[in-house]
């Protein structure tokens, strides 16, 4: 069945890279949940790719060759994080980065729970597509707190990471709070998330001005997305 014209155009703009930050988040949610939308995105990649192939070749600096050849094959994983990523399709693994930045909509799990996560809790591993830290968000449904653990680099100075819940019946991305310097989001924030929607919710982290989005919707690039998995 064909997509309606609005979704078709959204898929096209997603590949074109012209969606706003919150539309992009909506598109990324659709990608993980709507196979027709995902197929439409794949097709747009195929339709537009020929435009790239007319580019004139430009010889890169000679020293870059050595640097690049030496750089591959040394990237190590994040230890206990395993990429179940086979949900990432052919194009999607990078078309997300494309339209903006980021985020493999892959489902990741922990091979074993991190020590600070009690059994029965939920964990979302938010894995970047590009360079940058990975996040583990652990959510305790009993007291509604979210703890965020960062694996890797520091945030850019003057910027804050903000956590969002997307999909699961929400009309727009819902802010779950700004990740503070101690990598925590103040207690109680998850109280606003209906546990019944958790399975359909995609969590995302965007890079916002210091202190969080000034508008209540994501304004900066969406750097990470992930879904929850139980940790028992």
């Amino acid at each position: 069945m064909a997509l309606d014209e609005t979704l078709e155009a959204m898929a096209g703009e997603y590949v074109l890279g012209t969606l706003s930050a919150s539309e992009r988040l909506e598109a990324q949610t659709l990608l993980s949940q709507n196979t027709e939308f995902a197929a439409a995105v794949d097709l747009w990649n195929r339709r537009l790719a020929p435009l790239l192939l007319a580019a004139r070749a430009v010889t890169p600096p000679a020293q870059l060759r050595q640097r690049i050849l030496a750089s591959v094959g040394q990237a190590s994983g994040s230890g206990n994080v395993v990429d179940l990523a086979k949900r990432v399709t052919f194009w999607r693994g990078f078309s997300l980065a494309a339209s903006a930045v980021a985020a493999a909509l892959a489902l990741f799990i922990l091979l074993r729970p991190t020590p600070e996560v009690a059994p029965g809790n939920y964990v979302a591993v938010l894995q970047p597509e590009g360079p940058g830290p990975a996040f583990v968000a652990s959510i305790d449904l009993k007291d509604g707190t979210i703890r965020v653990k960062r694996l890797g680099n520091q945030a850019e100075t003057g910027k804050s990471y903000e956590l969002w819940a997307v999909g699961g019946g929400r009309a727009a991305p819902q802010s779950l709070g700004v990740i503070d310097a101690s990598l925590k989001i103040p207690a109680g924030t998850l109280g606003k998330v209906d546990p019944a929607t958790l399975n359909e919710t995609v969590f995302a982290i965007s890079l916002e001005p210091q202190g969080g989005s000034p508008t209540g919707a994501p304004t900066g690039p969406v750097l990470y997305t992930g879904k929850l998995v139980a940790t028992e």
Binding site: G17, A49, P50, L53, S95, A98, S99, V101
Partner: peptide, 16 residues
Amino acid sequence: AWMATIARNQAIDLRR
């Protein structure tokens, strides 16, 4: 086409 799409996406990622 595959590699050029990766290159374009990486470049736009960095540009943003």
